[in-house]
Amino acid sequence: MTTYKTPKINGVSFVASRDSISVEHVKPLVNINANYAAIMPFGFFRDVNSPTIIYNTKRQWFGESKQGAKQYIEVLHAQGVKVMMKPHIWIGRGNFTGHVTMTSEEKWQQFEASYSRFILDFAELAEQTNAELLCIGTELEKFIEHRPEYWHELINKIKKVYKGKLTYAANWDEFKRTPFWSELDYIGVDAYFPVSDAQTPTVEECLEGWKAHKAVISEVSDKFDKPILFTEFGYRSVDYSGKEPWKSDRNMNSVNMKAQVNTTKALFDTFWQEDWFAGGFIWKWFRNHEKSGGENNTQFTPQNKPVEAIIKETY
């Protein structure tokens, strides 16, 4: 087992907004000792019948555009916060990106050409702004499964324009099958692993729930001799937060701060001391700290909630 003695990536997933950011928007994340932020510009396509990614348009929010991503990175860097460029795609009708497949060879080629343009454009921006890390995709399992050759070629193209570190954000149930880890610097995992079925899971229950997952994660790190990076992690402040942590279901609306605190603490206790673990990005952090999260909020953000103290202490 290789050990990686580098400072942990103590990151937040910094949500794109309609406005630019300034020092005051970065201070709250510096206050919780975060040393990294994921910047997430967006592209979208309507459905599998028109798989051309639309991005960097006037209709999008500023933070989702190239200009916005650049402005965010410059302000973060000025405050000593490092950056992971993490472009996302969104599909109409709320379809999960991991399930997307094309109906013909022609459609696949159209999608590939479009995805290459999208990622290479942001790879160039990442190089230009000296972003420390680039995530080449997020939760695209079927795309990778059906078109592995395309991905190997894409990684080669990315390396020609971007000289920093590379990862890919595999879903928690996907990372074991991702075929190109040996070509990247970090094994990226969106860590929404189920850890407890309890309404208010205890730290102990979650630690127990992590054991089997941790063994597999550690094994994959060993197999490829690469550190693990949680490209996303976090829990909602709701009942049953550890049961299906990926759910953003609006019907789950019973506020439970203790559940969020305990699940988060167990994740930190399980991974943050491991040499093969590089760190991660909490999901998710909003620009306007004062108005984000709070005691009635049931969503993922840790802002203005008890869990913020746990993150600060670990980071």
Rank of each mutant, 00 (worst) to 15 (best):
M40N: 09
T298K: 08
K8T: 10
I89Y: 09
Q60T: 07
G242W: 04
D121M: 11
E132G: 00
D173K: 07
I187M: 04
V12D: 10
I144H: 09
A34V: 01
I119R: 00
G94F: 12
P245G: 06
E145P: 02
I158F: 08
S116Q: 15
Y4T: 06
M85G: 01
R117F: 11
E74G: 03
E274F: 07
L229N: 00
W61S: 12
F143Y: 12
K86F: 06
G279E: 07
N95M: 12
Y192S: 05
D173C: 10
L120D: 11
R250E: 12
I54Q: 14
I228P: 00
R147V: 03
W276R: 02
E205G: 04
A212R: 15
V255Q: 08
K165N: 02
V220A: 06
Y235D: 00
K226W: 04
I32T: 09
A126H: 04
L76S: 05
F271I: 04
G209W: 06
S13F: 05
G209E: 06
E149S: 07
F42C: 14
K284P: 01
G11M: 01
A169N: 03
S65R: 12
T2K: 14
I91A: 07
P41R: 10
K27R: 09
E308C: 06
V83Y: 01
I32M: 13
Y55M: 00
Q199R: 12
H99E: 15
K58D: 15
K165L: 13
Y72G: 02
T200A: 11
K265S: 03
L207T: 13
E174M: 06
S248F: 09
V195W: 05
T301A: 08
A34F: 01
A169F: 07
